[in-house]
Design a protein around this nucleic acid. Sequence first.
RNA 1: GGGCGAGUGGCGGAAUGGCAGACGCAAGGGACUUAAAAUCCCUCGGCCCAUAAAGUCGUGAGAGUUCGAGUCUCUCCUCGCCCACCA
Length: 823
Amino acid sequence: MDNYNFTEIEKKWQKKWKEAGLFTVDVKDIKNKYYCLMMFPYPSAALHVGHGRNYIIGDVVARYMKMKGYNVLSPMGFDAFGLPAENAAIKNGVHPEDSTMKNISTMKRQLDSWGVLYDWAREVASCKSEYYKWTQWIFLKLFEKGLAYKKKAFVNWCPSCNTVLANEQVVDDSCERCDTAVEQKDLEQWFFRITDYAQRLLDDIGKLGDWPEKVKTMQRNWIGRSEGVNIDFPVDGTDIKLTCFTTRVDTVFGCTYMVLAAEHPLIDKLVENGPDKLKIMDFIKEVRTISKIERGGAVGDKNGIFTGRYVINRMTGKKIPLWIADYVLMEYGTGAVMAVPAHDQRDFDFARKYELPLEVVIDNPKESLNAGSMTAAYEDPGILVNSGDFNGLLSDTAKTKIAEYMESNGIGRRSVHFRLRDWLISRQRYWGAPIPIIYCGKCGTVPVPEKDLPVKLPKVVEFRPTGESPLKYAPDFMDTRCPACGGKAAREIDTMDTFVDSSWYFLRYISPGIDDRAFDTDDVNNWLPVDQYIGGVEHAILHLLYSRFITKVIADMGYIAFDEPFKRLFTQGMIVKDGAKMSKSKGNVVAPDSLIERYGADTVRLYTLFIGPPEKDAEWSDQGVEGAYRFIKRMWYVFDLMDNSAPGGEGNPKAGKEVICKMHATIKKVTEDIEGEFHFNTAISAVMELVNGIYSAVNEYGADSLSEKLLESVMRNITLLVAPFVPHVAEEMWQKLGGKVSVFKSEWPAYDPELLLTDTVEIPVQFNGKLRGKVEVERGLGEDRLREIISGDEKIALWLKGVKIKKWVILPDKLVNIVGVNE
RNA sequence: GGGCGAGUGGCGGAAUGGCAGACGCAAGGGACUUAAAAUCCCUCGGCCCAUAAAGUCGUGAGAGUUCGAGUCUCUCCUCGCCCACCA
């Protein structure tokens, strides 16, 4: 047998698969369709082995499904707009387009060298105008429906980088790149009205049966639905009513003051003629301008100021003071909070600081509360006290009763609030899809007509940050004509968040070439929802939520017939090195190229899959790679065993029986591991055991103990089983075994349940739950006979001496436990 | 503060409530070799002990359910991730 020359083998098969179009799909052929999708990557300079995990897992699934007879669509593309390219451009003076295209070609080469196959004819890159034309079209569709709108909003501003930051670039209230504290700046911004879909996005999580529970929970928390009551508080001496939202209406009798957010729109009117107006305005200014980090850095440190006004708590009839404080957020609820210091820790802290009164209205059933001696708010449910007609009720009952009372007396209304905010999609950046909007002095905000798409991103632009959108300084881009009146007009200079690009790419793969529509409705309806989506858990919230939203919007407009894009989701864990995420700055990046050169792609794939359960993080070990390499060689050299076995010989029946049994068990195990939770690590270890089994049979019973025929049949099955994991060597082995077509066009092996079973079984025998011996008996032995054999066993008998047996627990063919006491 | 995970040998990790540590890495010993690499074989949780056998302890800690618990229940500790002054 030849040596295992992985370089030659891998080159050869990669070329042949390409020529044969192994993963080329005709979308019109929808029989047995299977859409296997991996999250498309951002084109960074080079991939490391951590990135590889995603593609290798996906490739295993695609190849496995292919062998199961499915028509597998596995496309790939690039999420090519975005900040890193722009930042690199600022730093190195290379145009983002050039660096991005260069990175894409590097990545494609790396993916090829891993043996990961895609239908490359469907490749998309979000920075190409033939793609973003349709991202812009989606924007226009949302605009048409009133789902895209512009409003003033605070954006994250890094004063050091002189630029706007996306939320995800703000880490611990500081700039992700330079660690400077992020400020809030008030700018006109485009939003998508995702909040209109909050309830549906929440409800439909129920449809996502095959998503990880963890991801579903994260989405639920992010949407954050809470039920409560909007309560009106009249401001004493005015006709103004302030409305606050609460989920704890049961505590309303304990509301001893009220607090507004500093951004609350009615503040100006309320303090207009007050004596402390200037002091209050100063306070508000401070809260607004101070960066978030100082404002909320230490939770518990709350600052506020009295407005001089009082509001009426209509449940108690009492006048309570109205305050402004930095711990109330304008973005959530109504920006006004009824403060119940006895039953809310934040209100408690604030009340203690400013010596505001505290009233217990929910008593702790275990230990009565004392307003004076409380050291913390009592936030648990309890029994109502000091609450008029509602005294004695349990919190839960009181919530309903009080809400009903408020509704029938016009004090408040039941209401639902979400934490989810509208999606801010404007970026004051260059490297993104331009927002297709034109501003005309006469006609106002005018959408670019569909026929004028794409609005092309100009190539020559000064994109060094000035604090304004770089496109402002591209006159050829900026200056245009109004599509409505033909007069002079200016283009929108902001670009779109890259999450917009990635929220629909899975549709484009179906119809990559067409330029008169974003996608073909029939084809998309035939192929989607995606059967299996695979990607990192870091996208659990934003990308997946946005994709679900856009899908629903497009579905509502009638372009597609489904409203959830991904049927089944798998989120793989990160690969870390020395306990940390791989990154260039930490210097712990493991590059695949040199490993592939040294051991071959199959080895790197095998180790990546063997490293641990794929949904969990795993620590990379270069020594572990060596082990994977050894296994492949060990498998390869089974061919030598075949050469050495006696030609035409019958072999040793006992050895043969053992190997056959093991073989069927392995087929069962590998199949179940792949189809279940993608536990490739245990699937691979099962094959390792089978290969070890062959070697030990030969060791124990001699070189000719396994007939050539048997070895060949075992090898054939091993080859099929490992094909998705180590495709090149498997294809080579398959050919050597006489395979006429590709192993990936061959049928996945089936096991014979009859042959899984050995003739005899070894039964562990316990005494009082502790293992005391084992007996080897024939399979399917009756309980009486088993009891007899065990009682007669010398070793067991020692333990049963002087013992009164109370009970025999017998699991036929599996285990026996004798329960007894010493007499 | 809230949510979700996870704690098993020197390490990565296995184990439908039924033999804890599969498989692999590392380590030690041996065979082959002039030598090395590669390969093959053996040992490999702790204690007791002479290497054994037999015994005994052992899955973060403690309790519970059970004939039987790494696995189920409760309490606690530690670590990781996500969210976080969300009313």
